[in-house]
Design a protein around this nucleic acid. Structure first.
Length: 271
DNA sequence: ACTATGTCCTGCGAGC
DNA sequence: TGCTCGCAGGACATAG
């Protein structure tokens, strides 16, 4: 499930591989499609453009498009949200088309970029300039971070997952950050002390950076642009470890459901 | 304005 | 062995 570190890994890999590629043609799967913009809009925005760079914003992969002939264009960014199971892979044209392929960009070099998404939670769109609704977890200052939780009655776990507050944090890294900050996921956001907010701010950045360094977490079917798996799942201390002993105190890890999301914590280490 | 819950979608694994 | 069932969850819609 691609969250910030996985999307960062994918975007870096794509930037390395396809920055400078010219898009020759575009194929979009038959309806119902995982699209936000209309098919026509997207094809028009992509065809005969050059990909100048690929970056991550929140959980979105942003492709910056440039006109090959210098003509002004309306939608200059292609936005891909991978959802749960989406993947973007650079392929040679003779590689068989995988099931659940919803979009293919053919480059003038002959290579292809393919968007595959079995569960269809992913979204594609074109836009003038994408702006994430929330703050970047890796850049937000402590004061701004602490301010997000003031007066919020929702569980801290839900607040971390709220993309309007922070863009990019998903279920895995929310659980892992809360464990490292020793805060229970059900705690009301507003109940965090300044010291706890400080710990959470540090823990979240640390866990995200460490995960990026290891190429993300490969749970189910996540792979990066090269088809490589990440390794951060080996560093998970609570996520997916229900009933297994806490790595700090040996107490069995508890799993509860908060706002419909499974949440993992140690009832001994986290308060 | 904020919070909680249901829905989408498919593959897979647990359990019988 | 083969089947059914329920879960996985990010974003959005809807209701309270």
């Amino acid at each position: 499930m691609p969250e910030l570190p996985e999307v960062e890994t994918v975007a870096r890999g794509l930037d390395k591989h396809i920055a400078g590629e010219a898009i020759e043609s575009v194929w979009l799967g038959s309806k119902p499609e995982p699209l936000k913009s209309s098919t026509e809009e997207m094809v028009a925005a992509l065809e005969s453009k050059t990909i100048s760079s690929v970056r991550r914003v929140g959980k979105h992969v942003v492709f910056d498009l440039a006109s090959s002939n210098g003509a002004p264009a309306k939608n200059t960014q292609w936005i891909v949200h991978l959802g749960m199971t989406g993947s973007l892979r650079v392929s040679a044209p003779d590689v068989p088309i995988e099931k659940h392929t919803h979009a293919i960009l053919k480059f003038s070099s002959g290579r292809e970029l393919r968007f595959v998404d079995p569960r269809r939670f992913g979204r594609l769109s074109v836009i003038e300039k994408f702006v994430a609704p929330g703050s970047e977890p890796l850049h937000i200052s402590f004061e701004d971070f602490a301010k997000l939780f003031r007066k919020r009655k929702t569980p801290i776990k839900s607040a971390l997952l709220n993309q309007k507050l922070l863009s990019g944090v998903g279920n895995i890294y929310a659980d892992e950050a809360l464990f490292r900050a020793k805060i229970r996921p059900r705690r009301r956001a507003a109940s965090l002390t300044r010291d706890e907010s400080r710990k959470l701010h540090v823990a979240l950045k640390k866990v995200l950076k460490e995960a990026i360094r290891l190429g993300g977490s490969s749970i189910s079917d996540y792979v990066d642009a090269d088809g490589e798996e990440g390794f951060f799942q080996l560093k998970h201390r609570v996520y997916g470890r229900e009933d297994k002993p806490c790595l700090v105190c040996k107490t069995p890890i508890k799993r509860v459901v908060i706002a419909g999301r499974s949440s993992h914590y140690c009832r001994q280490c986290q308060n």
